[in-house]
Design a protein around this nucleic acid. Sequence first.
DNA 1: CGTTATACGTAGCGAGCCTACTTAACATCG
DNA 2: CGATGTTAAGTAGGCTCGCTACGTATAACG
Lengths: 112, 112
Amino acid sequence: MKSDALRGHLDALLLATLDGERLHGYAIIEALQRRSGGALDLPTGTVYPALRRLESAGLVSSEWSTVGGRQRRTYRLTRAGQRALAAERTAWREFTTAIEGVLGGGSWPAQA
Amino acid sequence: MKSDALRGHLDALLLATLDGERLHGYAIIEALQRRSGGALDLPTGTVYPALRRLESAGLVSSEWSTVGGRQRRTYRLTRAGQRALAAERTAWREFTTAIEGVLGGGSWPAQA
DNA sequence: CGTTATACGTAGCGAGCCTACTTAACATCG
DNA sequence: CGATGTTAAGTAGGCTCGCTACGTATAACG
């Protein structure tokens, strides 16, 4: 998978991963792998800064917890994050509809 | 529509637009608007350089034709371009499957 | 004690789309 | 005939954002 295909959709992925559960960064990466059937394998250098961005945008919040001596920063969605997630899902549907309108028919059977 | 959502999918759009018909740049932009239901309104500064890239990659070829004194560069898919389009369509399906695996269920009903 | 896995993080690069601009022919209106 | 608008093609430069390449630290395992 081309890596710039993700452009503009990363936030939606992260928000969706945190929908309904609290996870720390490393676990988010693993959850993305699992849910995408192995297609998404995001490097830490992609995910951690993105989580920071989301936090400073007020869409997620985080807490430090020390588990077995290791520091883990656990994230969860804020109220605004849940709203943003809903908006992202709508935007995703509009986006795929637009692209598939073009990719779709190929020779394009006019109005159908 | 966020403009960077397009990132990495523009080539697929252009190739698909040229699938089965020969168009010049301006007409490609109009065709994209039409087929996407108005959602895609790409500026010339996006489309023209992209077409040049595709041409130097051997995926499209172009011919100058002078219509009423105006120069029009008409593009069409090459054989390699048709193969690339098929690959792009497959990649698109994989991409959306991956994203929807994450966005999809929300609280994620495990295996279904 | 060395290596691997877990876990977090930053600096800087690069691809690629967009903004802003330029050029040019023709049509229409005043 | 000059001005304005439409069709048509193009380039230069900027900016965003994910990625590569690092660096840090603890625990587990041999």
